[in-house]
Design a protein around this nucleic acid. Structure first.
Lengths: 163, 163
DNA sequence: AGTATTAAATTAGTTCCTAAGATACTTACG
DNA sequence: CGTAAGTATCTTAGGAACTAATTTAATACT
């Protein structure tokens, strides 16, 4: 990334780093609670919504791959896709080249599914972005990417070793 | 907050804002998957870990208040606290002034419970913070706080209206 | 004191997940 | 080819965890 080190005022930096860590944990907890509420409002389960998030990010996937990515069994994924299809949020398609496979396509955009449900946070986010410079937005984006890349490494490591 | 507006280069700002939103959603999805894996490693359920997060943030709570904050029933909380006690992560204490109430205390610090489990993300976070200026850390903290404050409003709104 | 209220636990029933096996399809080998 | 082995999803049985409603216990009201 070509960033320089910033060693000045050690204790202040350390305190800021700790504050960021604490705040990130708070956000994670509140995000989980909000997601539960959103899922309930959409008439699906929290795990179902999580799978939709994975599908939105990764694009259409086979059932088996979705099971891998989520850490669920294929049996669980069958039920989840049943419910998502029922609710009109996804659909099954057969892979023409390998008819054992079932490709799960997300239906509609995230916006179409949730409507204005998220508007309180979207408005807050928008307001924050309008009140800050492009450089500052870049900084936040850099932080989010760095954090977002570390998470799958953590998840993979935790799932690996049975010890 | 006393921030000035930054209207220059509209399309670039808009794109940055959208990128931040997308990245935040990615982080949320990955965070949820990571939390599941952490909970599994600790031998508890995802909801149990979520309740621990609420307890860490809000301090000791009555069972009823924990049910309110999480959106769960009191019956569910009874089971969760049973499991958390079993695993040594929390303990029940009777309120001396009102003996109907059960105060749930988190046991140990988060660090003591999870050990080095989170180190991959902590290391990434630490590296990012070392590579950026104090002003940039302040910016991220400001973002996280703004986002973190909006989430409970969203949750409350979604839980309210039964329509 | 006696009724109403509040807090948590209990119970019965439902939903969702896992583990194991069945089914359907594909690939590899003799 | 044709059969065996492998792969992908679905099905089934059982268990864990949640909800709604009730019960038990403590407190507040008048």
């Amino acid at each position: 990334m070509g960033h320089t080190e910033h060693p000045v005022s050690r204790p202040r930096r350390q305190e800021l780093t700790r504050s960021i860590y604490r705040e990130a944990r708070t956000v994670a907890t509140r995000q989980a609670l909000a997601d539960q509420a959103v899922a309930a409002r959409l008439g699906i389960g929290g795990t179902d919504l999580l799978c939709l998030g994975v599908l939105d990010h990764a694009g259409p996937l086979t059932a088996g791959r979705l099971a891998e990515l989520t850490g669920l069994t294929t049996g669980a994924v069958t039920g989840i896709v049943d419910r998502l299809e029922q609710a009109g949020f996804a659909r099954r398609a057969k892979d023409p080249t390998d008819r054992r496979k079932v490709i799960i396509h997300p239906e509609k955009t995230q916006r179409e599914r949730t409507g204005a449900l998220y508007s309180p946070v979207l408005d807050a986010l928008d307001a924050w972005c309008r009140a800050h410079s492009e450089e500052e937005l870049d900084t936040v984006l850099s932080y989010l990417r760095s954090f977002g890349e570390a998470l799958p490494r953590l998840t993979a490591q935790l799932r690996k070793r049975p010890d």
